[in-house]
Design a protein around this nucleic acid. Structure first.
Lengths: 336, 336
DNA sequence: CTGTTAGCGCATTCAT
DNA sequence: ATGAATGCGCTAACAG
């Protein structure tokens, strides 16, 4: 079903059909209605590939994400999708599973697909080969969640946020505060958050115990069990993301510790599900939806201006401390 | 960067470049290597739109899902993605937010995008206008999670599964078993599961209390609070999905009921997160990943054969009862 | 306001 | 084994 067929049946030229669709006011009202009617009768759908080939723009944005199994990114994608539709763009999401070679493959795929722009969450902007390649092509892009002085980024100040969280815990009487994180090397976010943790501890004049690094989420519960059993165990855990926080709570439970009575747990991300849990998750909430939305808006705006997005267009969005039930004041006798 | 440029720089014809990429053995070893080298130097990426236009196939599959905020569908999409890549296909996921007009829009968008096939989760196959339209086009498709005698579907027997779950609860001494569901009208899955609940109750000779229908997840906790406070309240809740189960547990907690001591809760879906919760969620686990994978395999196989997928190709995958901690035997004195 | 036509980048005949 | 030429469906000049 091509434009040709519609033109033939309507008794007009293909150019007229094209105009009727793309510039409705450049054709007579009657012609437009005729074309629309015929098109509907024929179930005509304009061919996106042909249009893209001809116009050299796809009106599609590529989105590169680590995974959709973490609700953080699912929520962000939701925001991206909404904003993209509003701006007349389709989106093509691709997940990388936190793997560098998948990042490259994703960028390659999307570039071949003629996307007009890219939104990506990379593991580390400084070392991402995919990002370097992308930059070379001149295709507009923006990073979400990442933070780097040489790239346009939309994120929150993760370092300040975690320092903040530590300060709150200290205010609640906690002294033995540990941090739980995924592999540091795998993500610049994790690194920032860890820096914030150390800063928060230093500011409070506390000695920071070693980072509890959990390489595989599957083993998180086991890994934590050990740490929570020793004498002088932490009374509070700052987790680098909400999924880790949820698993920390489980580990505590399995170890016979009640949350928050025996152990306070604070997460990072602000996934919606956290509010429905018992105990409701205390967390540093990022505006995941907004991070997506603003990324798209930045990108679309830049593409309209024809200018590639610069690093100084970066946005630092506010984060919020979401009070839940997984944190409480330290008990005086928390020396068990 | 087009095939022309590569041909020119390599001193061969465009046809040769094309062959070097698509039929490496139809070209001399030396020319192939030459072309590959030049292409790499020029950062040449074949243009997907042009290829699609020319070949009339995109090697892309459209995926229509209600939402990615429910991990069930995120997990399924993961399976779809893996299988699609393995089969040499890209995927284009689109979410509908459970809205019928969005279903239509999504199908329209994907058809315009020249997808070679579609995997969709619709609200109700019997009433879906999008599905009717799609069928008319002759584009191969398969439904996931839905179940309908006239369409190719990949899902589990939700009715039997819930009947099963009820039987287990009865075996544990429960008599006052209620079901919690989203809007029945909005999903054929919810309807099937509700049928299974009634069957299970009838088989046990029990009277089924009215369905606890929760139109908006946001109000689930409030809606449940009422039901759980009345005398003769249920001692067990069968929930139509895991997210509802999680909220039911929270509602119980807020109402002063302990799970599973005062109230047993069983979910449906088998989201991975359920295993990390405290109490770990007891649930009827669907093989979400497999539902996605098998859907893709069915589709690809049909497309290879050139035959449109028939309803009799439908797959009914096994479900599993995943034992957690949110269910326990009914207490004798559960009459509070 | 409408029609004619060229060409986007590629795969694929048909020659050689 | 390689090259020349055609057309996929569409939009954007240009002409009328």
């Amino acid at each position: 079903m091509s434009i040709q067929a519609v033109a033939a049946k309507a008794g007009v030229s293909v150019a007229t059909v094209s105009r009727a669709f793309n510039f409705p006011d450049k054709v007579t009202r009657s012609t437009r209605e005729l074309v629309e009617r015929v098109a509907r009768e024929l179930d005509y759908v304009p061919n996106a590939s042909a249009r893209t080939l001809r116009t050299q723009r796809s009106r599609a944005l590529g989105v590169v994400l680590p995974t959709l199994l973490n609700p953080t990114f699912a929520e962000c994608l939701q925001g991206i999708a909404r904003a993209a539709i509003a701006g007349g763009y389709a989106i093509i999401p691709v997940t990388t599973g936190y793997q560098l070679d998948e990042e490259e493959r994703a960028v390659h795929l999307l570039l071949a697909g003629n996307v007009d722009g890219l939104i990506l969450v990379v593991s580390n902007p400084s070392t991402s080969a995919a990002l370097a390649r992308l930059r070379g092509t001149g295709t507009p892009y923006v990073l979400a969640y990442n933070r780097h002085p040489e790239h346009p980024c939309v994120t929150v100040d993760g370092e300040a946020a975690v320092a903040d969280a530590v300060a709150r815990l200290v205010l609640h009487g906690h002294r033995r505060i540990a941090m739980v994180s995924g592999t540091l090397a795998a993500s610049d976010r994790a690194q920032q958050r860890y820096r914030g943790y150390r800063k928060g501890m230093a500011d409070a004049g506390l000695k920071a115990p070693p980072l509890i690094e959990v390489p595989f989420v599957e083993s998180a519960v086991d890994a934590l069990a050990g740490v929570l059993q020793v004498p002088g165990r932490p009374t509070a855990l700052v987790c680098s993301n909400d999924l880790l926080a949820i698993r920390s709570i489980r580990a505590a439970h399995l170890g016979g510790l009640a949350v928050p009575d025996d152990l306070s747990v604070i997460g990072f991300d602000g996934i919606a599900l956290g509010e429905d849990l018992t105990p409701a998750l205390t967390t540093i909430a990022q505006p995941n939806d907004d991070i997506g939305r603003r990324s798209v808006e930045l990108l679309i705006q830049a593409m309209a201006g024809g200018t590639a997005l610069q690093a100084d267009a970066s946005l630092l969005l506010p984060y919020f401390f979401r009070d839940g039930e997984s944190c409480a004041a330290a008990r005086d006798n928390a020396n068990d």
